[in-house]
Design a protein around this nucleic acid. Structure first.
Length: 496
RNA sequence: GCUCCCAUCGUCUAGUGGCCUAGGACACCGGCCUUUCAUGCCGGCGACACGGGUUCGACUCCCGUUGGGAGUGCCA
């Protein structure tokens, strides 16, 4: 039988680097075995899923070159490949009814409030948190009467009350053993009539002829439910394989707060798909010959599912950058030039309003915009010290402003734009120039320094490295708080 | 809390009982090349979490401890 694998992302938010990671593994496994790689969109949460997000998934998979043989935008013989469309076809309802008839599932009429109360009680008592199955014994005909009467309900699966589930995952040394009594009677069909992930995925994997479900470790806990569902539905079981989750530096599940997780961000930044794919591959898989730089074709040729690591790897941007550099430097001159144009164009539109009135010829943009592109700037020490100030005084003022801006940037309410920064910084100056009666002597001594003209020039020099620049607050806004704070710190270093 | 998974340098990993005084890559440090920087090359720092077994012999197998992670949703 031919291998058929899939990725089944949910179109919420930005296309995720984890999708690419799991996608890469599935893709390689499919290609290695002459099988098919399928993309299915799991949008059964009507409140969170968007079409734009689905489009972004297609786009990023294409960009990476992880082209699927079947999927929403390419078709295929087992479609539709979007679950919301399948809901409309009544596919999941049909299987839910089948489970109901066979006595493998039942109606539950609990309200959200009842369920919350149940959880709260269990939490307080340090008991495992799960549904108490209060409606499990309800006869089917009685439940149907309540449904007919318009009472809201969900359909839950009937999990065995005793015994245990054992599954040997090919990547793990020991079989995974889980007692049934610790597994919840999972909701299969929600009160809006749409399926939950568990029902939809099992049904679709079967209908789409999926032979191997290779997915992230976060699904391992619900594995018994999925296998049970296959059995109750009379489906032949695919092989389930669970790979480790990508991690942040602190080992927690990768998140956008701590890492760039948006695939399109990498494209915007100018990362090459080959580099990103190569990097992702080294995270979980290793070449038998130890090669660490290789093409997708090389990877497929040597790919071995059993060599995938189960321990979740830390996503290390520094290593990606190194690989990216290697790929970039191999690029032919015309591609390099194209990449430069792309990188510049992306920022020109934003900066042009600031630059324009100071420009005489187009080339002026290059040096005028330099502070906005540069990683760091190198101001002249003399320019950092306004007339009549000492080095120490200048440093004290920079430190004070930096601290204030740091607090400001950390404030959720505050916005980092020119008008807000203008108001904030002028307010700070006014405050410092007029210290309270009971202020420390040091503050009173510095009070005379807080003149806008001089402080603004010093700040301008610190953040741009030049005495000429667009208006200070526009400049601060365009630079972003991270760079501004960095440069204020660097200025203080220079003044030591 | 409960359940499950995982455990080699800071990070990604090689290692499937003797080839290991544990190999490579990133990062870091030093040197060479170079007017500078970068690239490139050379070198250095640096790990088998701990404790018990099994065995003639454990990084490799088993058990426990510790640590980390995930799940615990009418989200996926």
């Amino acid at each position: 039988m031919s291998v058929r694998v899939r990725i089944a992302p949910s179109p919420t938010g930005d296309p995720h680097v984890g999708t690419a990671y799991i996608g890469l593994i599935n893709y390689c496994f499919a290609k290695k075995n002459g099988g098919q790689f399928i993309l299915r969109i799991e949008d059964t949460d009507q409140s969170r899923c968007t079409e734009a997000s689905a489009q972004a998934i297609y786009e990023s998979m294409r960009w990476l070159g992880l082209m699927y043989d079947e999927g929403p935008d390419v078709g295929g013989g087992k479609g539709p490949y979007v679950q919301s469309e399948r809901v409309k076809l009544g596919i999941y309802r049909k299987y839910a009814d089948q489970l109901l008839e066979a006595g493998h599932a039942y109606h539950c009429f609990c309200t959200a409030r009842e369920l919350d109360a149940m959880k709260a009680r269990q939490r307080a008592a340090n008991e495992p948190i799960m549904y108490d199955r209060r409606h499990r014994g309800l006869p089917l005909d009685e439940a149907r009467k309540r449904v007919a009467a318009g009472e809201p309900y969900v359909i839950r699966m009937k999990v065995p009350l005793e015994g245990e589930h054992v599954y040997k995952d090919r990547l793990r040394k020991q079989p995974v053993v889980k007692a049934w009594k610790e597994i919840d009677d999972q909701v299969l069909l929600k009160s809006d009539g749409w399926p939950t992930y568990h029902l939809a995925a099992v049904v679709d994997d079967h209908l789409m002829g999926i032979t191997h479900v290779i997915r992230a470790e976060e699904w391992l806990n619900s594995l018994p439910k999925h296998i049970l569902l296959n059995e109750q539905l009379g489906f032949p079981k695919p092989e389930y394989v669970h790979v480790g989750l990508l991690r942040n530096a602190d080992k927690s599940k990768i998140s956008k707060r701590k890492n760039p997780t948006n695939l399109l961000w990498y494209r915007e930044q100018g990362y090459l798909p080959e580099a990103l794919l190569n990097f992702l591959a080294t995270l979980g898989h290793s070449m038998p010959d130890g090669r660490e730089k290789f093409s997708l074709d090389d990877l497929i040729a040597s790919f071995d599912l059993d060599r995938i690591n189960v321990a979740g790897p830390v996503f290390d941007l520094a290593k990606l950058k190194h690989l990216q550099g290697q790929y970039f430097r191999e690029l032919p001159a015309d591609r390099v030039q194209a990449e430069i144009h792309r990188a510049v164009d992306a920022r020109v539109a934003k900066l042009l309003p600031l630059m324009r009135e100071r420009m005489v010829v187009g080339g002026d943009f290059i040096w005028q915009a330099e502070p906005f592109y540069a990683e760091s700037v190198s101001p002249h020490v003399d320019d950092l010290i306004p007339k009549g100030w000492t080095k120490e005084q200048a440093r004290a003022v920079f430190e004070d402003v930096q601290r204030a801006l740091k607090t400001y940037a950390a404030n959720e309410e505050a916005t980092w734009d020119a008008p807000s920064l203008d108001a904030f910084i002028r307010g700070l100056l006014a405050e410092r120039a007029n210290p309270a009666e009971n202020a420390p002597p040091a503050a009173k001594e510095l009070a005379r320094l807080w003149q806008p003209k001089q402080v603004f020039m010093a700040l301008r020099v610190a953040v741009t490295g030049k005495r000429e620049s667009p208006p200070l607050f526009d400049t601060l806004a365009a630079l972003g708080h991270t760079r501004v704070l960095e440069r204020l710190g660097a200025a203080q270093q220079k003044l030591r």
